[in-house]
Each structure stands twice: as structure tokens, then as C-alpha cells.
């Protein structure tokens, strides 16, 4: 595992306390897990994602991510309908390790309340919670 200073936390996304991030994209939000989360999990071997069309509340689990010896639930940073799922992760779960904010994204959500985005932490606050 790396030191916090070695990890990457872009400013153009917002973070949840469960280490998911969300990024606005037109009227949708792209969702994934942070560099910290992927580093804690280690080599990711499987990502279980919901079917497109699922409606999931903020804070409810939308899937799970697995390393060889651990499973972590994934929690919605903001509620809404899942309109797209990153199918590339099926054959290439390692993308979550190598590009957590890029090709390792997980779902795109049409939010019930776009205002929920503002309730998520910005980079500065998230870093502060990580450093405890």
C-alpha cells in the first residue's frame, strides 16, 4: 500500500466517505472508486455492477468489488437511475487499479436530485478525512 501523498485525487470529482467518487458529465454523473480505495483493496479481480436501468438510492449498495481475499460493497454517492455500466470491467477489472478515474469508471447515473453532488466532499475535505 502507498502513502497518501503517493496517491492521486483529482479536483474535478467529488468524493463520498465510502471512497466512491462522482463527476458531472452533461446531465449525468460518472461514478467510480478513489485511488485510495483501489490501493487499499490491492489487485482487483472482479467488479459486480448493477444492470442498466436499476434505480438505486443514495447510500444503498450498487455492487461490489473483489480482490483475491476481500470483497467490498459499493455505495451510491448520489441516488438515481443507472443508465450505463462500464462493460470493459468484465474482462479487465484491473482498469480500476490502473485508471480509477478514467477507464476504470463503473456506472453513469441520472440523478434524482443533482443537488446531492454538492453534498459530497471536494478534494481538500476528502484528503483531510484520509489523513484523519
Amino acid at each position: 500500500m502507498k502513502e497518501i501523498s503517493e496517491l492521486n485525487f483529482p479536483e474535478n470529482v467529488r468524493y463520498s466517505k465510502d471512497h466512491e467518487w462522482a463527476r458531472p458529465e452533461k446531465d449525468l454523473f460518472v461514478v467510480g472508486i478513489s485511488d485510495y480505495a483501489q490501493d487499499q483493496l490491492g489487485d482487483i479481480v472482479y467488479v459486480d455492477l448493477p444492470a442498466a436501468g436499476s434505480k438505486i438510492k443514495k447510500g444503498a449498495d450498487f455492487g461490489s468489488v473483489e480482490s483475491v481475499k476481500a470483497v467490498s460493497e459499493l455505495y451510491m454517492p448520489l441516488g438515481g437511475a443507472v443508465v450505463a455500466v462500464n462493460t470493459q470491467l468484465g474482462d479487465n477489472p484491473e482498469l480500476v487499479n490502473s485508471a480509477p478515474y478514467g477507464n476504470g469508471w463503473m456506472i453513469k447515473v441520472k440523478p434524482d436530485d443533482p443537488g446531492e453532488y454538492q453534498q459530497l466532499m471536494d478534494q481538500k475535505r476528502y484528503l483531510a478525512t484520509l489523513k484523519g
Partner: peptide, 9 residues
């Protein structure tokens, strides 16, 4: 695929 099993899940 041990993550299916009781000692992890």
C-alpha cells in the same frame, strides 16, 4: 474465487 465463500463473505 474464494470471495464467494464463508470465510470472506
Amino acid at each position: 474465487l474464494s470471495t464467494r465463500e464463508q470465510h470472506i463473505r
